[in-house]
Design a protein around this nucleic acid. Structure first.
Length: 428
RNA sequence: GGAGAGGUGGCCGAGUGGUCGAUGGCGGUGGUCUUGAAAACCACUGAACCCGGAAGGGUUCCGGGGGUUCGAAUCCCUCCCUCUCCGCCA
């Protein structure tokens, strides 16, 4: 949620930020500003009447104690009560509309975010490793995996639906090893606390992160008499851990990591990445999440992105890091780095992590505050999140980058301790 | 799934229609005392929003929502949550 006071006092800043995003929100912002003005007109009027009503009630109490007649006072109060009720109903309607309007306004891009209209305008900030030279034509993982007997696409469809997959044998083991490896590095070297959250979340949590109300179509909702959704990312439960709390500033930054399965309906992406493991309705991810002070959040953002990159460096996978431009940065984010891993089967860098600083956008929606050390007034925290990393896509990257001419796949050195020492996955 | 009990400020715990945002205790902060600490004593100690340049003033909040009333923590309705027992179960 953007700061309502910013729209009120510096509407031009908000408007130009939305233009930079390529979002035409001028009508929505006009409506929001009008609702805000209505609210500020109604509120003092109601509060003044309530004050009179409180005084009147006290006068009745005094009069009764002294045995005087209170009929006139009560009659007066009755009229005022009706007026208060009438105005309050108006205010309630205005506030509801104002809330609804605020919840669909995206975040303001940070000043360091490059201007641009689409993903084509994203800017590469660094590149690590060199794509391997193959003496043969490298295969895509959707050929490698089934040939090794470790990925079964057909049976995933049989068990559930398209975009569900079964991992078998060394494939399942590899996914589990990756999860353990990532959690191990983040908890023992990067200072994150491991969390196992619920894999289903409620509407309040999804509203806090910004998935609701605007992106309900991307979610799987639980049928029946439940206000629950399958979590699309651990960002949702981790960010909401401190929803409605005021944290001690001395405790910040708080860093969490969690392995969870993630569930996304992938509505509207029917033509994209239909082959292979890239885009699934269910996938595993190790998430990184940080609650930070406002001053430190951009330093934390760099750190978090580096923590995610470190996994790829340990696995010796070539990657590049790009910063999303104003036209591509997500709804809740002020700034996002995408980390893209090299996939020889596609001869392309593909997203394997997305690391965002949402500043106070989610904190305002989820009411996450902290009391700066030595200060009395609580402030909105900044929240950050990033994949550290997407497990399925990491598995793909290993298969494709470490494939051998005979169709076997070498296990990266760093992963072998988590694979019971296995050094290679052979064809059956 | 069945039966019962209960949700009050950071915590414990009073309060069953009239200045109650709420007695008291604990915890916390500051002070007095002390070489220092403890103890004792004193004071302060929630949040959101509105008006205001500020100082300050005001409104709301006793699980959520609605209702009765001049007036609700207190009465009524409803929803949510927690706990206990039984059943079932990993």
């Amino acid at each position: 949620m953007i700061d309502p006071a910013l729209l009120r006092d510096h509407g031009d800043v908000v408007r130009s930020a939305m233009t930079a995003r390529g979002a035409d929100l001028s009508a929505a912002l006009d409506a929001l500003a009008a609702l805000d003005a209505d609210r500020r007109r109604l509120l003092p009027e109601i509060e003044g009447l309530q004050r009179e009503q409180n005084e009147s009630a006290a006068a009745v109490a005094r009069a009764k104690k002294e045995g005087r007649d209170t009929a006139a006072l009560q009659e007066d109060s009755r009229h005022r009560a009706a007026r208060i009720k009438e105005l309050s109903q108006q205010l309630e309607a205005v506030e509801q509309q104002r809330r609804d309007a605020l919840l669909v306004i995206p975040n303001l891009p940070h000043a360091t975010v490059p201007a641009g209209a689409s993903a084509d305008d994203n800017v590469e900030v660094r590149r690590h490793g060199t794509p391997r030279e193959f003496a043969f034509t490298p295969q895509a993982h959707w050929d490698l995996g089934p040939a090794l007997g470790i990925i079964d696409f057909e049976r995933g469809v049989k068990l559930a639906a398209a975009r569900f997959t079964v991992l078998m044998g060394a494939g399942a083991q590899l996914a589990r090893a990756l999860i353990n490896f990532m959690l191990h590095v983040h908890t023992t070297e990067h200072g994150y606390t491991e969390v196992e959250p619920p894999f289903m979340v409620n509407a309040a949590s999804l509203t806090g992160t910004g998935n609701l109300p605007k992106f309900e179509a991307d979610l799987f909702k639980i049928a029946g008499d439940w206000d629950l959704y399958l979590s699309p990312t651990a960002e949702v439960p981790l960010t909401n851990l401190h929803r409605g709390e005021i944290l001690d500033g001395a405790r910040l930054p708080i860093r969490y990591t969690a392995y969870t399965p993630c569930f996304r309906s992938e509505a509207g992406s029917y033509g994209a990445d239909v082959r292979g493991l890239i885009r699934q309705h269910q996938f595993d991810k190790v998430e990184l999440m940080i609650v930070s002070t406002a001053e430190d959040s951009y330093a934390e953002h760099e750190r978090l992105t580096g923590n995610a990159e470190e996994i790829l460096r340990r696995l010796e996978l070539p990657y590049r890091t790009i910063v999303l431009c104003t036209g591509d940065v997500g709804f809740a984010a002020a700034k996002t780095y995408d980390i893209e891993v090299w996939l020889p089967g596609q001869q392309a860098y593909r997203e394997i992590s997305s690391c965002s600083n949402t500043e106070a956008f989610q904190a305002r929606r989820a009411n996450i505050k902290y009391r700066p050390e030595g200060k009395k007034k609580a402030e909105f925290a900044h929240t950050l999140n990033g994949s550290g990393l997407a497990v399925g896509r990491t598995l793909i990257a290993i298969l494709e980058n470490y494939q051998q001419e005979d169709g076997s796949v070498v296990i990266p050195e760093a992963l072998r301790p988590f694979m019971n020492g296995m050094a290679r996955i052979e064809r059956p």
